[in-house]
Deep mutational scan, measured.
Amino acid sequence: DIIVVALYDYEAIHHEDLSFQKGDQMVVLEESGEWWKARSLATRKEGYIPSNYVARVDS
């Protein structure tokens, strides 16, 4: 799995977006363009995230 960590807070604009806080970790489910589908490890919610707001966690 690709794990990313939030670099900034993000408040969902559309209902399919995923809100998150700086430091939150998410599993990337699908990478396509600038918006990635991800699942929050904390809340288990899924939605689209702006890929420029996150960084990959080296395992």
Rank of each mutant, 00 (worst) to 15 (best):
N52L: 09
L41F: 07
Y10M: 03
G47H: 00
W35T: 07
R39C: 08
V27T: 07
I2E: 06
I3W: 08
L7Q: 05
E31G: 13
Q25K: 15
T43P: 02
L7Y: 03
P50G: 03
E34P: 12
D58P: 12
R56P: 09
I3D: 02
D58Q: 11
E16V: 08
E11S: 10
L7P: 00
L7E: 03
V54A: 03
T43L: 04
A38D: 00
E31D: 15
V28I: 14
A42P: 05
I49V: 08
E11P: 06
I49T: 00
S19W: 04
A12L: 02
Q25P: 05
P50W: 07
G47S: 01
G47Y: 01
A12Q: 05
S19I: 02
S51L: 06
D9P: 07
D58V: 12
R39H: 07
L29I: 10
I2L: 11
A6G: 06
G23D: 05
S51A: 13
A6W: 01
D1S: 12
V4A: 05
M26Q: 00
V28W: 02
Y48N: 09
R44V: 06
D17S: 10
A38N: 01
D9W: 04
L18N: 01
D9R: 05
D1E: 14
H14Y: 10
W35K: 12
Y10K: 03
S51N: 07
D17R: 09
T43A: 04
V5K: 05
D24P: 01
S32I: 13
K45M: 12
K37C: 12
Y10L: 03
S32K: 14
I13T: 12
S19P: 07
V54Y: 02
V57L: 14
A6E: 00
E46S: 09
S59Q: 13
H14N: 11
V54I: 07
Y10I: 02
N52R: 12
A12G: 11
A38F: 01
D1A: 13
L7A: 03
Y53W: 07
H14E: 07
Q25E: 11
H14V: 05
R44H: 15
K37G: 02
Y8V: 08
E11G: 06
L29S: 05
L29A: 03
I3Y: 10
P50C: 10
K45E: 12
N52A: 14
I2K: 12
D9E: 05
M26C: 02
L18D: 00
K37S: 05
W36T: 07
S40K: 11
